[in-house]
Amino acid sequence: MNIKLLFTTAILITLSSCSNDSTSDLVTPTNNAVTIKYSSDIASIINSNCLSCHASPPVNGAPMQLTTYDDVKNAILTGGLIDRISRAQGSGGMMPDAGNRLPQATIDKIIKWQTDGFVN
Rank of each mutant, 00 (worst) to 15 (best):
I82N: 06
A62W: 10
T67P: 12
S40N: 15
I42V: 08
D70K: 15
I42A: 01
G79I: 01
V34A: 11
D70F: 00
H54R: 13
V27P: 13
H54W: 10
V34M: 10
P29F: 04
S44Q: 10
A75G: 15
T78H: 03
Y69Q: 11
I46G: 12
I46M: 13
K73C: 07
D71Q: 11
S52H: 03
V72W: 08
M64L: 15
C50W: 09
G80Y: 05
M64Q: 12
A43G: 00
C53D: 11
Y38G: 13
T67L: 11
Q65K: 14
D71G: 08
N60I: 14
L51M: 02
I45Q: 15
I76S: 09
S48K: 15
P63T: 05
I42F: 01
I45L: 14
A75S: 15
Q65Y: 00
V72F: 08
I46L: 13
P63K: 13
G79L: 04
I46K: 12
S52I: 04
T30D: 15
G61F: 08
C53A: 12
A33P: 02
N47H: 02
N32T: 03
H54N: 12
P58V: 00
A75P: 14
K37T: 05
V34Y: 09
A43N: 08
P63L: 08
L66T: 05
P29Q: 00
S24G: 00
L26D: 06
L77K: 15
Q65S: 10
N74H: 09
L26H: 07
N49G: 02
G61T: 07
S52V: 08
V72E: 11
I42S: 00
I82D: 04
L66F: 06
V34H: 08
